[in-house]
């Protein structure tokens, strides 16, 4: 390629010289119109753009996926609890997926009382049987966090348990019965029931 034509070189501090279109092919001047965009080129551009967008979206996925809990963490979250040492009328709190889970051993009197409650009076109607496992009415397993975001108290017989013998929220004072149904106070919903199963007569697996 030819070197710079000396006649066009002007001193450093002067304005650039006007262009000399006669010397150059028209496409190479600054004022040139954009090169002709043929239909084939447009097609290529669109295919390329579409493919690149698809590629970028696919490339984002692995990065976001690293933030997800890994499959190993997810599968290892099951918590097995031995119910052996929990006396009737008392309860324990275990942690599952970072959340408190209440396990309560109910007395026969408590079971009878909740089973006989008229569910039509309840704010969030649910039968006692729908919130425990069949044949294991003496065991109640609940999420410990109430609708107000506070962990309820009442597991130990010496804790405040409210008028209904279950749990009380230390924040808004809502009272729950022994199967975790809301009975008084500002809360609108019952305590949730986590997924769990009896793996034997005296052990449950949460998760």
């Amino acid at each position: 390629m030819a070197g710079p034509a000396t006649e066009t070189i002007a001193p450093f501090d002067q304005a650039p010289p006007p262009h000399t279109p006669a010397v150059e092919p028209h496409l190479l001047t600054e004022a040139a119109p954009p090169p002709h965009a043929g239909p084939r080129r447009d097609f290529l551009k669109m295919t390329l753009a579409a493919t690149s967008v698809v590629g970028l979206c696919m490339a984002i996925w692995p990065f976001l996926d690293t933030m997800d809990p890994s499959h190993i963490v997810v599968t290892s979250t099951d918590v097995t609890v031995n119910l052996g040492g929990i006396p009737a009328g008392s309860g324990v709190t275990v942690v599952w997926k970072g959340q408190p889970i209440l396990i309560r051993h109910r007395t026969p009197a408590e079971i009878t009382r909740e089973q006989n409650t008229n569910i039509l009076q309840l704010r969030d109607p649910a039968t006692d049987g729908s919130r425990v496992k069949t044949g294991h009415a003496d065991w109640v397993v609940l999420f410990g966090t109430g609708p107000d975001g506070c962990v309820v108290v009442g597991n130990s017989p010496s804790d405040p348990r409210g008028h209904y013998g279950g749990w009380v929220s230390p924040c808004d004072g809502s009272q729950y019965d022994t199967v975790g149904r809301i009975r008084s106070g500002p809360a609108k919903t019952n305590l949730g029931v986590p997924p769990y199963d009896f793996s034997s007569a005296t052990t449950i697996t949460i998760g």
Binding site: I9, A10, P16, P17, V23, L27, L28, A32, P35
Partner: peptide, 16 residues
């Protein structure tokens, strides 16, 4: 830098 050589050296628009 003055674009002195622009008139004599072939250039093309950056895009495309």
């Amino acid at each position: 830098a003055p674009r002195l050589e622009m008139a004599s050296v072939e250039t093309v628009p950056f895009h495309p």
